[in-house]
Amino acid sequence: MSVGHIARDIEASGIPTTAVYVRSFRHVAEAMGVPRVVSPLHPMGRPMGPPGDSARQQDVLESALELLESATEGGARCDLEQPYRPVGAD
C-alpha cells in the first residue's frame, strides 16, 4: 500500500508514474487507484523477475515504459503472464 500513496501524490503533482506490482498485490493497486500498473506473475519480493535474469527484468521494465506511452487515463494495467522460472531451471 505504501507505494500506492506515493504514486497517487506524485502523479497528481504532474509527474507520470508507472508501477510494477506482483500479482498477489495487484488488487491493492486497483483499490488505491494507482495510475499505471504492470503485474507480472512473479512471487512476492521479486517484482522484476528472477535473480540474474536480466532479459526478464528488462522485459518488465519495457512493459512499464509501454504503459506510460499507451495509457490515456488513470488505472491503466498490463498483466504479464510469463511464468516465473529461476535461471538455470530449464
Binding site: I15, P16, T17, T18, A19, G45, P47, M48
Partner: peptide
C-alpha cells in the same frame, strides 16, 4: 525527473 518508475515489493 520526467517520469517515475515505482517498484513495490
Amino acid at each position: 525527473i520526467d517520469v517515475l518508475l515505482l517498484v513495490p515489493v
